Amino acid sequence: MELTNRKLVTIVTEAAIEDTLVLELEQLGARGYTITDARGKGSGGKRDATWGPQANIRLEVLCDVATADAICTALRERYSDNYAMVMYVSDVDVMRPLKF
């Protein structure tokens, strides 16, 4: 089995900006993404997603280093001051690297 290293960018943020973020991700070079509902508690308190404005999403993007850097830089500059947002990047090994 041959594996290739890629980056996994994970963004946990407010569901209210989902559509805007999806457009941004595509413009920044993401070839695809996965979105799931997210619940939890952090420095901003508990977000239980039972009410629309309290809903969070988790966006995940598998990509190369340059795209990961572009995504993190752009989202930090454009959204992190005004929206609840946590981002982290992990090293992952993938099969079929041309998809990412």
Rank of each mutant, 00 (worst) to 15 (best):
L3N: 03
T4I: 02
N5A: 10
R6F: 08
L8R: 15
V9L: 02
V9N: 02
V9C: 07
T10P: 02
I11N: 03
I11A: 01
I11K: 02
V12C: 10
E14C: 03
E14Q: 14
A15E: 13
A16D: 07
I17K: 01
E18Q: 15
E18P: 01
L21R: 02
V22R: 14
V22N: 08
L23E: 15
E24R: 10
G29M: 00
G29R: 03
A30R: 02
R31Q: 13
Y33A: 05
T34F: 12
I35P: 05
I35K: 15
D37Q: 14
D37W: 12
D37P: 03
A38E: 07
R39Q: 14
G40P: 04
G40V: 04
K41Q: 11
K41D: 00
G42Q: 07
G45W: 11
K46D: 03
K46E: 13
K46N: 05
R47Y: 05
R47N: 03
R47P: 01
W51T: 12
G52M: 10
A55G: 04
I57E: 03
I57A: 03
R58F: 00
V61Y: 05
V61T: 04
L62F: 14
L62D: 02
C63P: 06
C63Y: 00
C63V: 00
C63N: 06
C63I: 01
D64L: 00
V65N: 05
V65C: 04
A68L: 04
D69G: 04
C72W: 04
T73Q: 11
T73V: 07
T73R: 13
A74W: 11
L75F: 09
Y79L: 06
S80R: 14
N82I: 06
N82Y: 08
N82L: 05
M85K: 01
V86T: 11
V86E: 04
M87W: 13
M87G: 04
V89Q: 08
S90H: 14
V92F: 11
V94Q: 08
V94A: 06
R96K: 15
L98G: 11
L98D: 15
K99T: 09
K99A: 12
K99H: 11
F100R: 07
